[in-house]
Simulated scan of single mutants.
Amino acid sequence: MLRRIGLGAAVLALIGWTADAAPVPGSVQLVGSWIVQADNDASGKFAYCDATRDGGGASVHIGQSASGSWQIGFTNSGWQFAVGQDVPVTLFIDRVPYPLVLRTSSPTTFSTALPDTTLLDALRQGDMLTLQLGAVYTTFSLDGSAAAINAAALCQQGYAASTAPPAVAPPPSPQAAAQPPAVPTTPAATPAPAGMPPEVAQEVSSLQGNCQVMNKTPPPIGDYVTRIGLTGSGVDDWLINTGRIACAGLAGGGGSLVEIFVGLPDGHARKVFARYALGVEIRGSTVWLGSRGEQCRGSAAVPPATTTTCQVPLIWNKATQRFDDGSPTNVQ
């Protein structure tokens, strides 16, 4: 069956994978055979998060921009296209064809935004992706693609939220200006099981729902949710280690998803961290993540070529309200 994806002018207004994009330090993570990272544009502003995989001398990129749109692109050092050129291709996902027109952002890279989630859903569920460019076919395994795409989405949510400008209130009307200013109030959070903030309870409910869909009984909440102070604010924070709730389906070759919610004084919580890790260890008030690849290269004692795995501490940055990677240890 032929599935055609419509392309309009808006679709071709691409952000693309440009040569002047730069990875955000500390954002690179391995999810199975995929590399997931955040990238800034030439001005240093967050641009997108993407998942990349090599195949046959080319790379496929599946990413989500700061505005939330999804895109797919390909890079091959052997290509020599004119920048701005429209290139018709056909993608096959498990032999189902998807005709597309991609636009070149550099001589070696072309990409397109996706008008809906049709192709994205197929990429999550498929086993093999094939790029047909003229008479040349390049294949990419989609093993682990669902976890990689999920990781890219979580990456985008975190960085987009941290860079969103504060909302500006409209000027008051003359009638409102004549009234005495109201005292701002914040609604109290509704208590959740085990005292969890509603945001944490919602995430727990989602994980349990994944298990129920697969007819699995989720383990006790205490097996995968840890209540702990990590920021020194005096308000409890919450860590979710999905590796301890395997039936949720968020584990793979790149490890399991780890999420941290920072507790707020009003009883709510804000998710400030999400990354796939090979393991989690809590030492005092510091979280250590089992990592590998790029995140283990902060040690001068071990050359990058020999780096395989390590443990990375998460350091709370009060100024940015984020967790930064500390110096890796136990590099092997």
Rank of each mutant, 00 (worst) to 15 (best):
F140T: 05
G158V: 02
A58P: 10
L257A: 00
L119R: 06
L278N: 07
L30F: 01
K45Y: 07
T139V: 02
S77E: 15
G267A: 00
P197V: 03
A146K: 05
R227W: 00
L250P: 00
Q80F: 12
A177V: 02
C155L: 05
A47W: 00
C296T: 05
V31T: 05
P313V: 15
D94F: 04
W17L: 12
V96H: 09
I240N: 02
P99R: 13
P165G: 04
R95Y: 02
F81C: 09
T286S: 13
D54A: 13
T108A: 15
V204D: 06
L239Y: 03
T130C: 13
R297F: 11
Q311N: 15
T329E: 14
L12P: 07
G16M: 10
G68P: 15
V31Y: 00
G222M: 03
A248K: 02
A277R: 04
T190D: 09
G84I: 02
Q64K: 13
A10H: 12
H268Q: 08
F110G: 13
D50C: 12
A248P: 06
R270K: 04
S173Y: 06
I245P: 04
G243Q: 06
P88F: 04
D223I: 03
S327V: 13
S59V: 07
L257F: 01
P197C: 08
A305L: 08
G267L: 03
A148C: 05
N330W: 03
A201G: 14
G232K: 01
L278I: 05
N40P: 04
D324S: 15
L289G: 08
A153N: 10
S145N: 06
A153S: 11
V87N: 15
Q85W: 10
T217E: 05
A148Y: 00
Q132E: 12
D127T: 13
P25A: 14
F74R: 06
A82V: 13
P193S: 12
P172H: 10
C296F: 01
G232E: 07
C296S: 14
R124W: 00
V11M: 15
S69P: 13
R292M: 12
L7V: 11
F74E: 09
C211T: 10
T90I: 08
D143H: 06
P107Q: 12
V11D: 15
